[in-house]
Amino acid sequence: MAAIELRGLTKVYPGGVKALDSLDLTVPDGEFFALLGPSGCGKTTLLRTIAGLETATGGAVVIGGRDVTGVQPGGRDIAMVFQDYALFPHMDVSDNIAYPLRIKKVPKAARLAKAAEVGARLGLEQLMDRRPGQLSGGQQQRVALARVMATQAQAFLFDEPLSNLDARLRLEARTFLKKLQRELGVTTVFVTHDQAEALAMADRMAVMEAGHIRQIGTPAEVFQRPANTFVAAFIGSTPMNLLDAVVRGDTLEVAGCKLPVPASAEGLLTEGEKLVYGVRPEYMTYSAQPVDGSLTGGVVILENLGASHLVTLDVSGVLVQAVVPEGHEPALGEQGYAVPRGDRALVYRDGELVTA
């Protein structure tokens, strides 16, 4: 097993398109690390550059203390699972799993024994004679994972391996994959555009935008304290409320309402300063009765989330959202009061979090 370290990693495509811009990142040995971001942000390019499938324009890739920047993919001692699983359609499951060992010239008996061992561990023992076209999406994914396990590589790289599965199977697969990684203890880098996957599976994660890493942290850190408004707007199944604010003494004027300055920003603001006030709908308490320090408006939208409802208030022309428990949802059109949790509210200056 091995840590992965990126030092000033840069990738520029012909025409001057900079896909990766001097990235520095360390993934410790045994960590499950997720790369998250919108389409085109550079996350897959970064993964492919770690794998050696893309050539770095500058900087270095270090795996297990060894600089592999100029090393071909086969010499990096990593294993990769692609979005489409990249299984050989003319080979059965056993041969697909054993193929990397065949490339390493492992004797046939030994590699087939290894394939059988790994296949059994992933519940594939009844499918070893089938070809990929005879398997479901979930079964194909397990074959791809078995092939990775059989290589016994220093690090695993996953390029959106759950994206081809239906919603129910994705939930089952991510639990299975996380459990498997914990058991193996292999350093893993997982690319996804699905923030729910990243938040649920990763030990730590990086949020990328336009070839830059905007924040690195645990899922809790990234969700609760986004470092900038890009991460704040991108992370979360319901978007964070990001509202224009002006400092008025020891309060913030937000959409015509007065809110207390968040504890994290006390003593750091200037009278009259224009900022962005951020609070997640999950950290808002809804009340039908007037409350000091609340955002007041009419209920204009109700969205059923299952065990809760997303309530949208029109606060002087600004839309503000709060999550309320099932059975406590208001009626459309009623006057409501959304109270931000002081320990979860944040303030941004020039797009960056204000904090001591």
Rank of each mutant, 00 (worst) to 15 (best):
V143R: 03
A322L: 12
A34I: 00
G119H: 02
V247I: 10
L302N: 08
E266Q: 10
L165C: 01
V311S: 13
L145A: 05
E125R: 04
D166S: 00
Y85K: 03
I4Y: 04
H193C: 08
E352P: 14
Y337N: 13
S316C: 10
A167W: 04
G327K: 03
T44F: 04
A202S: 05
P262C: 08
L87I: 05
V61S: 04
L165F: 02
R121M: 15
G123H: 06
E326C: 10
Q140H: 02
Q154N: 12
V300W: 14
L124D: 05
T55Y: 15
G217V: 03
G256S: 12
R147A: 01
E326Q: 12
Q141A: 02
G42Y: 09
R147G: 06
S294I: 04
R102S: 15
V291C: 13
P262R: 06
L269I: 03
V347R: 07
E172N: 11
I78T: 13
D244T: 15
I301F: 15
M1C: 04
V143T: 08
D194V: 05
G37L: 05
F156I: 04
M208R: 00
R130D: 00
T44Q: 00
P161S: 04
T192N: 04
G336E: 09
V81I: 03
V62R: 00
M201H: 00
H90K: 00
K18I: 12
V318E: 12
G342C: 09
L268T: 08
D292L: 08
A153I: 01
E117Q: 13
P330V: 08
G123R: 06
A206M: 00
Q152P: 15
K108P: 09
R174I: 01
T10V: 13
I216P: 06
T192W: 04
V339I: 14
G306V: 04
G256R: 10
M208K: 02
P260C: 08
S237G: 15
A110C: 05
H90E: 05
A60G: 06
Q139L: 02
V279K: 01
D250C: 07
D314T: 11
E352N: 15
G256N: 12
K104W: 09
R174Q: 03
A210T: 14
P239H: 11
R225N: 12
G59I: 06
V347G: 07
A210I: 06
S39L: 01
A356I: 14
G8Q: 05
V62E: 03
G74P: 08
L313Y: 14
H193M: 05
P161W: 02
P239S: 06
N96M: 01
I235G: 08
V106Y: 13
T49M: 07
L169Y: 01
E326W: 14
V254I: 10
L25F: 00
L145Y: 07
A146M: 08
D21T: 09
G351E: 03
H212P: 14
M91H: 02
T218A: 06
I216V: 14
H90Q: 09
E271M: 10
K18V: 13
G15T: 09
G185A: 07
T57N: 11
V320F: 11
Q335S: 13
T218E: 10
G272D: 14
A144C: 05
I103Y: 14
G133L: 07
P28W: 02
G333P: 15
E5M: 02
V12F: 09
K105Y: 07
L252R: 09
D350L: 09
P219A: 04
V276G: 15
T57I: 08
L268D: 05
F82Y: 01
S163F: 02
T69P: 06
